[in-house]
Structure formats: structure tokens, C-alpha cells
């Protein structure tokens, strides 16, 4: 205490100055409306910036929680969306039915795009009801198909895999074809086997066909960027730009189709 008093006494001129300065500022603020509004403006800017700063770092620490929340919401919305699109408007007679699709959210722990047969690894496995041949989708479009699983992880055959063929269609006219990767650019695929009797234009959306049990139908895949007519004049060869950015994938959803065992049974 003695030391504090000594320090104040030693710098008493400064403290007197400070005190009187504060008094003059108050005086200034009180007397002049212009200064009053300017000072208020300064304080608003200051506190605004401080609050902004506080919010930004607080939200940074909450990011993990927010992410989880968003994932949950997305998962629910996606499954609602998919179920909605699967149900034809005229078969809503039977009332609430058992959902035939469930989404399991997962994070990609490893991803490659530089090979010709690319795989990913996701952090969900048998524990989370993930089995082989389940489709994997992201918020933007489809990603791949589950290949192998163990207790906690699963490997995914990426769309960017030369041997994977996906059933896809043009959204406009429902013309079916199969989609595969040429193995060159990670954002371009080829849609083949679409008959030339179907009109096509650049920018048309390509969606999943729903013929396979991997993916529900009408999930977005990409956009037509170029097309040529094959020499036989019967089919198009269509270049598709993918919606999914495979180099920046993080969260994905695994599609659990409850009807798949039944479908497989029939196929046999």
C-alpha cells in the first residue's frame, strides 16, 4: 500500500493531469452535441469491435459443437429429403410408413484423388451398422460406395475409381446411362449409354438413377459440360462436371437402405 501511495505521489503530476483531462473530456462531451455524438460513435465502434472479437473467438471454441449440431441437422434433413423424393405423391395413402433409408454421418479420415483407383476411409464401421455396398453421399452429391468394413472404420470406393460404374440419369428427361471416371481430372466423369433420341443441352443436371440399391434416386451428381455423339450415332458420350469437390471432402453420410437385402434376394 505504502508503495502504491509512493508511486502515486511520485507521479502526482501525471495523475493530476489524467484526472483533469478526464474531467475536461466529460465537460467536452457534456457541452457539445457534436462531440457527444462523435464520442458515442467511437465508444460504439470500440465496443462493437470488442464484441465482434469476443464473439469470433467464442464461436471458434464452439465450432466443434456447432459442427456436430449441423451434422445432425443435415443428416435429418437429408434423410427427409431423400424419403420425400422417394415417395410418389399418390402412395401416401397408407399413412406413416417405416422409413426405408437412414443416413449415418461420418468423417473422412483418409482420402486420395491422385490415383486411378481411389479409396477413402471413413470413421464409421460395423459398430455403427455400416456394411459393404452402402452408398456414401455428401451435401453436394454422391461420393462412393462402401467397400470393406471393420469394427470402427470402413473403406469407400471413391467415384474416382476406374472400375466403378454408377447408374445415373439426366434430370430433365430421365434418360438412363452409366457414369464412370476416365481417370484424368478429379472433377470430371463420363456419362455414357444415353440414347441420342433424348434431347440434351449443356448445363443439364445429372442425378442418380435409383436403379441400384447403393443410392436413392435423384441425388445430384453434376452438370453436363460437353457432349459428343458417338460414331455409331446411337449414343451420346457426355462429360459431367461433378458437384462434389473430392479434394475438400470432410463430412459424408452413409446411406443405409433397409430394402437392400430384399432387393439383393430378388437379384439372386
Amino acid at each position: 500500500m505504502q508503495q502504491i501511495i509512493n508511486a502515486i505521489l511520485k507521479n502526482r503530476n501525471f495523475f493530476i493531469y489524467l484526472l483533469l483531462l478526464i474531467f475536461s473530456l466529460l465537460f467536452l462531451q457534456k457541452k457539445s452535441p457534436y462531440h457527444q455524438s462523435t464520442i458515442r460513435n467511437i465508444s460504439l465502434t470500440l465496443s462493437g469491435n470488442l464484441l465482434d472479437f469476443r464473439n469470433s473467438y467464442q464461436s471458434y471454441f464452439q465450432l466443434r459443437e456447432v459442427n456436430k449440431q449441423l451434422m445432425r441437422q443435415n443428416q435429418q434433413l437429408q434423410s427427409l429429403l431423400i424419403q420425400g423424393s422417394q415417395t410418389a405423391p399418390n402412395d401416401s395413402t397408407s399413412g406413416p410408413t417405416k422409413p426405408d433409408i437412414e443416413l449415418i454421418s461420418a468423417r473422412i479420415v483418409q482420402n486420395s484423388i491422385d490415383g486411378v483407383r481411389n479409396f477413402m476411409i471413413v470413421d464409421k464401421g460395423v459398430e455403427n451398422n455400416v456394411t459393404t455396398e452402402m452408398g456414401v453421399i455428401s451435401d453436394d452429391g454422391i461420393v462412393g460406395v462402401i467397400d470393406q468394413t471393420n469394427q470402427r472404420y470402413a473403406s469407400v470406393v471413391s467415384l474416382l475409381h476406374r472400375d466403378l460404374k454408377i447408374n445415373a440419369k439426366l434430370k430433365n428427361n430421365n434418360a438412363f446411362g452409366s457414369l464412370y471416371w476416365m481417370g484424368i481430372q478429379p472433377n470430371k466423369m463420363v456419362l455414357s449409354d444415353i440414347p441420342t433420341i433424348n434431347p440434351i443441352s449443356i448445363g443439364d443436371t445429372v442425378v442418380t438413377g435409383g436403379m441400384s440399391a447403393y443410392f436413392p434416386k435423384d441425388l445430384p451428381i453434376g452438370k453436363v459440360s460437353k457432349y459428343t455423339i458417338l460414331p455409331s450415332k446411337r449414343y451420346y458420350e457426355i462429360e459431367v462436371i461433378l458437384f462434389t469437390n473430392f479434394s475438400a471432402l470432410d463430412h459424408v453420410y452413409i446411406v443405409r437402405n433397409f430394402d437392400k437385402p430384399l432387393l439383393d434376394q430378388l437379384k439372386k
Partner: peptide
């Protein structure tokens, strides 16, 4: 000194702050 000038001239606190700072 600054305060009286301010009060007489009606200039809010400009003279006070300037003179006070010069004095310091």
C-alpha cells in the same frame, strides 16, 4: 485557465484540454 476560457467563449472543452496538456 482553459476552463474559464472555454466557459466564457462557449467552446465546450477544447481550450481546457489543449491548455491542460501544454501545462503538463
Amino acid at each position: 485557465l482553459g476552463l474559464f476560457i472555454d466557459l466564457i467563449l462557449g467552446t465546450a472543452g477544447a481550450h481546457t484540454i489543449a491548455t491542460l496538456t501544454i501545462g503538463f
